[in-house]
Write a protein that binds this DNA or RNA. Structure first.
Length: 423
RNA sequence: GGACAGGUGUCCGAGUGGUUGAAGGAGCACGCCUGGAAAGUGUGUGUAUCGCAAGGUACCGGGGGUUCGAAUCCCCCCCUGUCCGCCA
């Protein structure tokens, strides 16, 4: 959520930003509701002051007439307060629902554009492989080597589920441990996080689980959801807290399952395990001071690069354009791995993403810290994918396939897998 | 899941309808005392929000209710502890 005062004082900039992001939000309406809410609230507070004043007059001994007259006044105030309270609550909920539609401001350098085609390519790392044979996609490889099974998963759970089998299962564990080892060395505190979170935490992070197009599974009869990412639980971890940042930013890593509805997503570009209802992800999350977030964002991107350079996966880094940023992000970098089985002759496919959400999430979650002057300030939060297993598997399988149909394991993973080839 | 017992400020802990934003103590901060320290002693010490300020409002686990007035009475929920049951 943006600061309401900021919206009020910078409506034009906020409106321009909404337009750049191709989002549907009404800044003017927010300003109007904010004004009405404040007016209503100050009237209400005035009435409450009168009520408190009236009540304190009745502390001592009074004549019956005086007492009765005060009680009458009190009753009158009481009904006025009740009326104004419901009006104020009403305005507040309208205000908060309209305000939550307004996206975060974007970094001045974030490319302006509507779709991912307009993302700005920063660099390419590694070499796109050339094959002297027709490379298979991961679905074919997975079937031939008995690594991924879709049909029975569909029988058991539905489409876009899968059994990761045999060496692919080991590969998930190996990738997890590989990522965790790197993150621990960088000072991240590791945890395996809950796969379920409450709606208000989801909303604080910027998800809208009740929305029509929500990608989130809600658990019927509860106010809980399956998490789409550990960003939710790691961000909720310090919700409503005043945290201590005097020893530097808080770096957290979470291992979780991620559940996504992916309604309507189908076709060539979501085949196999590229877009699925459930996968495992190792996520980075950082709480820091406002002045630190830009440089930490670069650090997170570098860690992602280090992880995938280590895996010998060719990838490029893009600066995500405003239309593709999502609500909470101020700036976002994606790593896109080369996937030889994607599209006609291979294509880039997103494998990680790191966002600087500035104070957008922390404001609603109530995560603050005390600055040097003892003032309470809203933190900045950042998140980034260390490894999303399913997409990392695609990149590893498709890039490292060999003519005999086997898959070579990146050498850095061999100590974790115990095998160096899948055949 | 069942039965009790609890949930008050940074912490411990008093408080069962109005003079309590909250006794008392600890801690912390700043003084005094001391050669220095401990002890002692004095003063101060919550958060959020609106406001230039004065000041207002809200907050005693959360939500609702009763009342002119609620930390205090009533209802619902949550959490913690202990015991029992069940279980990986």
């Amino acid at each position: 959520m943006l600061d309401l005062k900021f919206i009020r004082d910078n409506v034009e900039a906020v409106k321009a930003n909404i337009q750049n992001r191709f989002m549907d939000a009404d800044a003017d309406l927010v300003v109007e509701l904010y004004g009405k809410y404040n007016e209503s609230l100050s009237k209400l507070e005035d009435l409450r002051a009168q009520r408190n004043d009236n009540a304190s007059k009745m502390k001592g001994k009074l004549s019956p007439e005086e007492r009765n007259s005060l009680i009458e006044q009190g009753k009158e105030l009481k009904s006025q307060i009740a009326e104004l309270e419901s009006e104020t609550t009403d305005l507040k909920s309208k205000l908060s629902s309209e305000a939550s539609k307004i996206p975060n401001m974007a970094h001045p350098d974030a490319p302006i554009g509507k779709e991912d085609k307009e993302n700005f390519q920063i660099k390419v790392c590694g070499t796109v492989p050339t094959f002297n044979f027709k490379p298979l996609d991961h679905v074919q490889l997975g079937e031939k080597l008995d690594l991924i099974e879709f049909e029975r998963a569909t029988k058991v759970s539905g489409s876009k589920f899968y059994f990761l089998k045999n060496q692919a299962a080991i590969l998930e564990l190996a990738l997890t441990r590989y990522a965790i080892d790197i993150l621990m060395k960088k000072g991240f505190k590791v945890s395996i996080t809950p796969d379920i979170a409450k709606v208000d935490i989801l909303e604080g992070i910027g998800f809208n689980p009740r929305g029509e197009e929500s990608n989130i599974y809600s658990i019927e009869g509860t106010d809980m959801c399956l998490v789409g990412t550990a960003e939710i639980t790691l961000g909720g971890y310090h919700a409503k807290e005043i945290i201590d940042l005097s020893n530097g930013p808080i770096f957290m890593a979470g291992i979780s399952h991620c559940f996504r509805r992916e309604a309507g997503a189908a076709g060539q570009y979501s085949k196999g395990i590229y877009r699925v209802h459930q996968f495992t992800k190792i996520e980075m999350f950082v709480y820091c001071k406002p002045e630190e977030s830009d440089s930490i964002h670069e650090q997170l991107r570098e860690i992602e690069e280090e992880i995938f350079n280590g895996l010998e996966v060719p990838f490029r880094v893009v600066d995500t354009c405003t239309g593709d940023l999502g609500s909470p992000a101020y700036r976002k970098y994606d790593l896109e791995a080369w996937m030889p089985g994607r599209g006609e002759n291979g294509d880039w496919g997103e494998i990680t993403s790191t966002s600087n959400c500035t104070d957008y999430q922390a404001r609603r979650l109530g995560v603050r810290y005390k600055d040097d002057e003892g003032k309470t300030v809203i933190c900045h939060t950042l998140n980034g994918t260390a490894i999303a297993i399913s997409r990392a598997l695609i990149a590893i399988m498709e890039n490292n396939q060999q003519e005999d149909g086997s898959i070579k394991i990146p050498s850095i993973l061999v100590p974790y897998t115990g095998f160096d080839v899948i055949k």
